[in-house]
Nucleic acid binder design. Structure first.
Length: 883
RNA sequence: GGGGUUGUAGCUCAGAUGGUUAGAGUGCCUCGUUGACAUCGAGGAGGUCACAGAUUCGAGUUCUGUCAGCCCCACCA
């Protein structure tokens, strides 16, 4: 039992502690281990990623749940791994290539992929290392990667089955295209932002020279691809003109004026130019009305060949040119300011260009239905509940999922095209011979799958699927998924759909949603703003325990939180407080008989009180953990350890520890050690390092805290219980007297630790004996000495009154009678107001008849005690005035 | 255009199923370093719980509306 340094310095032990846990395989479990299965699969961070505050929060919440359940005795598995993050990772390597003056096309697909794997090997573990510094107790032996052999096999199997069932199809459709990333995107990868744009009004003349139709557009450059103009069938203005031919300005293409009920009569001129190849709505109208699709914008955002002087221009340069030319030709009527929503690539923020291309899609309707049913039946529950509605609403309006990406890094789609017969073959294994014509000229589909396709399988692919592994049997469905609300659509819903489809069960029973970590001004932390705080820096300065505690306190499920250095400091101070409370115990342990175990009757009031408070906190902390109210659980522990244990209990043990009664000292040490050890175990999920390092120094302790049982009231049942009204009442009385001594002393500017005489007049006879027995507590906590029991009110004294007692501090010479009268008057005023409102309640007939008797009684008690206090104060004031 | 969410002390936030005189951290003020901790202790000031109604014996807590902020979804050119 050696002592510890004076200040808490996490840098000295966090790393070693983690290494020891790993060495001892404390994070590892097996399917056949005992206990109820409890499993969380990590939201796999991007291999390109660096730990940011969002991860830190996500990991901390998971680690708290994992450590709690592991201690509780569950067979606990936290499944770790990383995500290949298609676009992000590919972009990193392409950037590297740019620096070398080359690009992926020059390198070729095979060589490029070698480079990416190389990159992954070099940098891919950085984030995992960072997770370790945070204390994450993942089962690292089971680490997975979305592109490892197993996950890839799962992807192929799922793809092929969905294809065979007709749930995956390939089609030429209009999709969101990012000209910079040079790939198609799914709908949710497009972020809509309202922008201040323009509405250009343009005249399209009739071929027969009988005037013109005016259309309005926000994207004039797309007119090059116009193949019609649409009006609403009921629009009186155009009814007789439908069917006539228009001449497209600048292009001189003949295009029809047609009717389609999609058109809004009220908007613009009521006539819409229709560009089927570059607008989703126009695309649909084009299909309905048999219009030609003329593609005029290339994948890279420049204008297509065959458009004369416009060819090769950037889409926005072209827009300027078109507008200028329209104006010169007399076609431009007017330009209005117009606010509208524009889609941007969520990765690079380039404006999305809707383009027609051949892509792969997942048909969502049949997959979505069971996912909706899962929350309705209660098989899947969101915490907090409100996210259920968001989830359901999204699924009910879901559209097909574009899963093909024109990238190289990712799961290449397992489809082969035969150059001989033109047939396509989708297969789990590589195809070398066309099954239709036995030709050998096969080309594999070049596109890869959306990263989220493999993520969707994560809860079962990591457990070994498609093999029927013991892990899969034991841990699927997993217990809970912990993630931010920002990826519910990207990830959560897709996992639910795939889990239900391929395992017949939800992938997790609960989804615990948290918010975003923002900066001190409430802004989202982002690279471009440069306002991100690096968790690694915080850990280096203050320790992982401080960061974790800061992230979890003052936070409630589903809500954002702000990062403040001052809050990290406050968490660090808490750690230091625990450190020093432990240090206090350790330095007094000399000669402590480890085998001593007192009986309940050997304990004194303070001991019984702190043990009872401990039992109470065990109940509330456990209850809050079960309800995912981690912030509240942490707050409970903070209050218990700092206020109840340190501020009161430790102070009350000092006389015994410094005194000469060996047995009393041993009893006090026993309780101190017991309470501290329990508190450390309760706190361990939140602050794993500190609790481990301290607990190992305590008597009677063997093995790691992370494998010790989580405290229960049963464990303490021969010493205390969570319910003990008698102890509560006594503690309240003693503590309120303590406050009544401290308060006036402080107001007179007297050093709180300076001994001062106190006169107690006990007004409630029931308390006399009790107070006489425990008056030493008042003496110790309030530096009150001597304490005299008397029935007289000393004349020259500060005073206060509590339930059952009057407290006097005879400080002759220091008292300003007028000031004291004023102070008491103020107090009296407060009490009278309270008495009036309480009396009012009690006069209310309906309150008396309708409120529960217990509530009525408590109001009566309050009124009685308040009136008693009022009368005491009145007497006191009269006495002072008569001096 | 729908939907969600927030509005409590100067600042950041807790206050589940309505019931003591609404709490904490931080900041501020006063006092205090002979040993667990100044990364500390004692005390204090500071809130008409956004506003208006409703339900109720009783509302920070439930309902409706208003105002303000934030977010998500949405194919009006």
């Amino acid at each position: 039992m050696s002592n510890i340094p004076k200040t808490y310095e996490p840098q000295n032990f966090e790393r070693e502690t983690y290494a020891a846990w790993e060495r001892d395989k404390n994070f590892h479990t097996t399917a056949d281990a005992k206990g109820e299965p409890y499993c969380i699969v990590i939201p796999p961070p991007n291999v390109t990623g660096q730990l940011h505050m969002g991860h830190a929060l996500d990991e901390t919440l998971q680690d708290i749940l994992i450590r709690y359940h592991r201690m509780k005795g569950d067979n606990t598995l936290w499944m770790p791994g990383t995500d290949h993050a298609g676009i992000a990772t590919q972009a990193k390597v392409e950037e590297q290539l740019r620096g070398e003056g080359t690009n992926r096309y020059e390198l070729g697909r095979e060589k490029f992929l070698e480079r990416v794997w190389q990159w992954k090997e070099t940098y891919g573990n950085r984030i995992l290392y960072q997770l370790k510094t945070l204390g994450s107790s993942c089962d690292w032996e089971r680490e997975r990667f979305t592109m490892d052999a197993g996950c890839s096999a799962a992807v192929r199997k799922v793809f092929v089955q969905l294809y065979n069932e007709g749930l995956i199809y390939r089609g030429r459709r209009i999709t969101n295209w990012c000209p910079k990333c040079n790939t198609a995107l799914s709908d949710i990868e497009v972020e809509h932002e309202t922008e201040q744009g323009h509405l250009w009004h343009i005249r399209y003349p009739f071929k027969d020279g009988s005037g013109y139709v005016e259309v309005a557009t926000t994207r004039p450059e797309t007119m090059l691809g116009d193949t019609g103009v649409a009006v609403h069938p009921d629009d009186e203005r155009y009814k007789n003109l439908v069917g006539k031919i228009l001449i497209l300005p600048l292009v001189n293409r003949e295009i029809p004026l047609f009717a389609d009920s999609y058109v809004d009569k009220e908007f613009g001129t009521g006539a819409v130019k229709v560009t089927p190849a570059h607008d989703p709505n126009d695309f649909e109208m084009g299909l309905r009305n048999n219009l030609e699709q003329v593609k005029v914008i290339n994948n890279d955002g420049t204008m297509s060949d065959g458009l004369g002087k416009y060819s090769g221009l950037d889409r926005y340069k072209c827009r300027e040119q078109i507008v200028a030319d329209l104006e010169a030709g007399g076609f431009l009527v007017k330009v209005e300011n117009h606010e509208h929503a524009v889609g941007h690539c969520h990765r690079c923020h380039t404006t999305i260009e809707p383009l027609i291309s051949k892509q792969w899609f997942v048909k969502m309707e049949t997959l979505a239905a069971p996912a909706i049913e899962a929350v309705k039946s209660g098989a899947l529950k969101f915490v907090p509940e409100r996210f259920t509605k968001i989830y359901v609403n999204w699924l009910e309006n879901i559209r097909d999922w574009c899963i093909s990406r024109q990238l190289w890094w990712g799961h290449q789609i397992p489809a082969w095209y035969c150059d001989d017969c033109g047939e396509m073959t989708v297969s789990e294994v590589d195809v070398h011979e066309c099954p239709h014509c036995h030709g050998k000229n096969l080309r594999r589909e070049e596109d890869v799958l959306d990263t989220w396709f493999s993520s969707a399988l994560w809860p079962f692919s990591t457990l070994g699927w498609p093999d029927d592994t013991p892990e899969l049997k034991k841990f699927y469905p997993t217990s809970v998924l912990v993630t931010g609300y920002d990826i519910i659509f990207f990830w959560v819903v897709r996992m639910v759909m795939m889990g239900l489809k391929f395992r017949g069960e939800v992938p997790f029973r609960k989804v615990f949603i948290h918010g975003l970590v923002r900066d001190e001004f409430g802004r989202k932390m982002s690279k471009s703003l440069g306002n991100g705080v690096d968790p690694v820096e915080v850990i280096e300065k203050y320790g992982a325990d401080s960061l974790r505690f800061m992230l979890v306190t003052g936070n409630t499920p589903g809500n954002d939180l702000r990062f403040y250095w001052s809050r990290v400091e406050s968490a660090r101070n808490f750690a230091n407080k625990i450190w020093n409370a432990s240090r206090f115990l350790l330095m007094n342990l000399e000669g402590f008989d480890e085998n001593f175990k007192p009986k309940r009757d050997d304990l004194e009031l303070a001991d019984r009180w702190i043990l009872h408070r401990l039992a109470y906190r065990i109940e509330t902390v456990t209850d809050n953990l079960e309800r995912f109210e981690l912030g509240e659980a942490a707050r409970q522990l903070y209050e218990f350890i700092w206020f109840e244990f340190c501020d009161y209990y430790i102070e009350l043990t000092k006389s015994r520890l410094y005194g000469s009664d060996a047995q009393a000292k041993t009893a006090a040490l026993f309780v101190l050690a017991t309470v501290l050890e329990n508190a450390l175990r309760l706190l361990h999920p939140f602050m794993p390092f500190l609790t481990e390092i301290i607990r190992q120094k305590l008597p009677h302790v063997e093995g790691s805290i992370m494998l010790a049982p989580y405290p229960t009231c049963d464990e303490l049942s021969d010493l205390t219980s969570a319910e003990d009204d008698e102890i509560d009442a006594i503690a309240n009385l003693v503590l309120s007297i303590v406050r009544s001594v401290r308060n006036p002393k402080s107001q007179l500017g007297i050093d709180s630790r300076k001994k001062a005489a106190v006169v107690l007049k006990v007004t409630n006879a029931d308390f006399v004996e009790l107070l006489k027995n425990h008056v030493n507590y008042v003496a110790e906590l309030a530096s009150a000495e001597p304490i005299i029991f008397a029935d007289e009110k000393p004349a020259h004294a500060l005073s206060d009154v509590v339930d059952g007692a009057e407290i006097y501090l005879p400080l002759e010479g220091l008292i300003d009678t007028d000031k004291e009268i004023a102070r008491l008057d103020k107090e009296l005023d407060k009490l009278r107001k309270f008495a009036v409102s309480t009396a009012g309640k009690l006069k209310n007939e309906r309150f008396l008849t309708k409120a529960p008797p217990a509530v009525v009684q408590s109001e009566r008690d309050k009124l009685a005690s308040t009136e008693e206090k009022i009368s005491s104060l009145e007497q006191r004031i009269a006495q002072l005035k008569s001096l």
